[in-house]
Design a binder for these strands. Structure first.
Length: 558
RNA sequence: UGGGGCGUCGUCUAAAGGUAGGACAUCAGACUUUGACUCUGAGUAUCGUGGUUCGAAUCCACGCGCCCCAGCCA
């Protein structure tokens, strides 16, 4: 437990514990509908719910809210389980499905019919809408509202048996057609759906609606604090009404503001569009905000958790600067990612005074943030590659890298000075000729001479070829779609440079055996992970995030 | 225009009638074998108007602004 201030949900829990409301019990749940992939917004909910359980010695359930067979699929169930586990949401053996409770819910529905507070309605969809009224007009009672208990029971049982077509009848709660809260105007509890369910098959042809089902699910599982997002605030009176009518265990619904991020689109509909139209390469394209994509891109789950905790929990609708997510990744990776040397856009360097054919091993620290990470040997020779951006033909004074006559340090190796540069016919610099100072081995000069810059490098003969996928934000606008007209305004804000594939990268030889998912810092560049597409002999890296770069910022200012 | 919710630095978020604090971002500097990390410093906020009070972000009143709701989706 930390001494950080409590968020409003923790305050509720501590008050409940103090009053003995739940006898000290805390039981939360994450209840996704298996109709899409989990994204960073869901991560906030998972971290919140599972974190509360952990903090207060309670329990956390994973429960699929699979009440709509028209939209749900096993593929999504599998991906969600994988993602929740990866994030560290510890539901132990408590993996549940709303569909497991269909029998209980059906019995409870009959109970409400017996009680006279639920009825079978024959109104079709258009009629029901008309009878419902609107914000300024109270609704009218359905003509079927006063059927007898016997008739309702008979009809409901026949609905279950499949005697009626989809849409022909519904079971409705008898509440108040004039309520200012439209959710209370006799909401639908069951609809007829002749659709095969991914778990129950064709056992059922009537399916419970969200409002009826959700409280039941929470109640059955003994949930104490049922946490959901703000848009369900209007549904809470209904949640309470059903549970009160049933007289069963009654959890408290609490609403919080969902996560929104700048430069990001998080709606399932829009994400599906990006995937189906090939704008990204599937749900796990590293530019997507899904958890599978973020995993593939190299985000550590610990970083996502830290981020989710850092942004806080309130009822204020807020948009988080995506830079904070990137920062969370840097923060974790800085402490844990081993450093390596890799050159994204190589420029050849020949050390003219290096003994021909000689190879030396230099010792480089694996992680200056972590002494225990130790050191490694990296081969150095007279033919090297450095980063193209680290040389300028006519550099400004504040450029600390290589230029004609300038001297820099090669990380862990020697000081080198540029004596000459070679251009091809088109005027592009293709090679540098440098001299090295043998007295500076390891990177220190005995005469106390200073250099401003330290460059990363690889030995040409020893380097391993790699493809590097350099990602940038998928959208170029802070609020994608804002200010544009049309069907899918967010498409107008797509960043045309969100993916750059660098085929000719060169990395140090120790990376040859790296496996998919391994994360590294390429010194001075950023954090990189080995992509799923990587095969031995064909290394592929994803750039997770760059290092902070004040030089680039300076340049951008002009 | 009915019902529900929300307004604190640029962005998040604390302060439960008593010094408006922190993080990220920004700017300036120190350090540096990563222009990273780390460290130091700076500026910037209580939606408005009244009221209660010795004292109000906090309590009261009246406004204003933004979000959600008219699926047999969740």
């Amino acid at each position: 437990m930390s001494d950080a201030p409590l968020n409003f949900i923790e305050e509720i829990i501590e008050a409940d514990n103090a009053s003995g409301k739940w006898k000290g019990r805390v039981h939360t749940r994450f209840p996704p509908e298996p109709n899409g992939y989990l994204h960073i917004g869901h991560a906030k909910s998972i971290v919140l719910n599972s974190g509360l359980a952990r903090r207060y010695g309670g329990k956390f359930n994973l429960r699929f809210d699979d009440t709509n067979p028209e939209k749900e699929e096993q593929e999504y169930v599998d991906s969600i389980i994988r993602d929740v586990k990866w994030l560290g949401g510890d539901f132990e053996d408590r993996l549940f499905y709303a569909s497991d409770y269909f029998g209980q819910m059906y019995d409870w529905a009959e109970q409400l019919i017996q009680k006279g507070v639920a009825y079978v309605c024959d109104l079709n969809q258009d009629q029901m809408k008309e009878y419902r009224g609107d914000w300024n007009t109270p609704g009218k009672n359905s003509p079927y509202r006063d059927r007898s208990v016997e008739e309702n029971l008979d009809l409901f049982r026949r609905m279950r048996k499949g005697e009626f077509e989809p849409g022909a009848k519904t079971l409705r709660a008898k509440i108040d057609m004039t309520s200012g809260n439209i959710n209370l105007r006799d909401p639908v509890m069951y609809r007829i759906l002749k659709e095969s369910h991914h778990r129950t098959g064709d056992t059922w042809c009537i399916y419970p609606s969200y409002d009826w089902a959700h409280g039941n699910e929470d109640s059955i599982e003994g949930i104490t604090h049922s946490i959901c997002t703000l848009e369900f605030e209007n549904h809470r009176p209904l949640y309470d009404w059903f549970l009160d009518q049933l007289g069963v265990h009654h959890p408290q619904q609490i609403e919080f503001a969902k996560l929104q991020l700048t430069y990001t689109v998080l709606s399932k509909r829009n994400m599906l569009y990006l995937v189906q139209n090939g704008i990204t390469r599937g749900w796990d394209d590293p530019r997507m905000p899904t958890l599978s994509a973020m995993r593939r891109r190299g985000f550590p789950p610990e970083a996502i958790r830290a981020f989710a905790e850092d942004v806080g929990v309130t009822k204020v609708e807020s948009v988080i600067d995506i830079g904070r997510l990137e920062n969370a990744a840097r923060d974790h990776l800085n402490k844990h990612a081993p450093r390596r040397l890799g050159v994204l856009k190589p420029l050849k360097v020949t050390i003219t005074n290096w003994p021909a054919g000689q190879v030396e091993e230099v010792e480089v620290q694996n992680n200056p943030e972590d002494e225990a990470a130790g050191t490694r040997k990296v081969p150095f020779s007279g033919e090297l590659f450095i980063e193209r951006d680290d040389f300028m033909e006519d550099p400004p004074k504040k450029f600390f890298r290589l230029g004609p006559g300038r001297e820099v340090r090669l990380r862990g190796a020697y000081f080198v000075a540029c004596t000459e540069f070679v251009k091809d016919a088109s005027g592009t610099v293709v090679e540098l000729k440098c001299t090295y100072d043998p007295a500076t081995k390891g990177g220190n000069s005995p005469d106390g001479r200073k250099v401003k810059g330290t460059l990363h490098w690889v030995s040409a003969a020893h380097a391993v070829d790699a493809e590097v996928r350099v990602f940038d934000r998928l959208f170029a606008a802070e609020f994608p779609g804002k200010g544009h007209e049309g069907e899918r305004p967010f498409l107008k804000d797509l960043n045309p440079n969100s993916l750059e594939i660098l085929k000719g990268a060169k990395v140090e030889p120790s990376l040859a055996g790296a496996a998919a998912g391994d994360r590294f810092q390429f010194e001075r560049l950023g954090y990189f992970t080995v992509d799923l597409d990587s095969k031995s002999g064909g290394l592929v890296f994803n750039r997770t995030v760059t290092l902070k770069d004040t030089w680039a910022k300076e340049q951008a200012k002009g």
